[in-house]
Nucleic acid binder design. Sequence first.
DNA 1: AATTATGGCAACCGCCCTTTG
DNA 2: ACAAAGGGCGGTTGCCATAAT
Length: 221
Amino acid sequence: MGKPGRDKQAKNQGAWSKQEDQKLIDYIRKHGEGCWSYLPQAAGLLRCGKSCRLRWINYLRPDLKRGNFAEDEEDLIIKLHALLGNRWSLIAGRLPGRTDNEVKNYWNSHLRRKLINMGVDPNNHRLRQNLLRPHNPPNPASASSSGLQIQAIQKPTKPHVDKEQVSDALSCVENDPCALPDLNLDLTASFHYPSIPHVEGNPKDSRPLDIAPSSTLLLFQ
DNA sequence: AATTATGGCAACCGCCCTTTG
DNA sequence: ACAAAGGGCGGTTGCCATAAT
């Protein structure tokens, strides 16, 4: 294919206008989500298909929750991030009405800092070494602010994993339920597009879910 | 009141994977 | 088997609002 993200007809960039939003909404209400590369032309939008897709998924979809994250959503994001890493689409799939972009932004702007304040390395979800020393312990009050308790773990984590590792990790969880005592996560793909007209089945939706390894994760109780 | 710093979020970029012919 | 096209994803950027000075 040609250079990705480059639609030759696309002219508009930057923020979407109300008119553009309405065109996109109207088109998708009428025809459903189909071929994104064809959509701009059909809907009369001077945007690239990717831009339309992103605008719809992240902003215009009728089932989006928006607004502040609840505390249980925060907890879930932290737990899932510990399990999955920066796989925002998978994490968002477990949060009805939330998008990967929203979860990613919330992580980067709120939760990362929160974990750091708790003395936890947001990259590997382990207690930072310097904070384990007696003269500089993590603040227990802040650490329990979201109802989380933390156990330090020893082995380093690998940020990115391949699919075989992922399935190994899943079987590890299955074989050893004590590994993740209280997560109780049903890690099957879950998508929430209840009000979108279904035009054609998307084969990608049925692809197997891949899960990051858990053996070196910080454990939450 | 004006200026600067910071945070939050929407949107874009570019890579990678899957599908199709 | 291969290449091209489409779509999805995570990372990054840039704009705007608010806080601090």
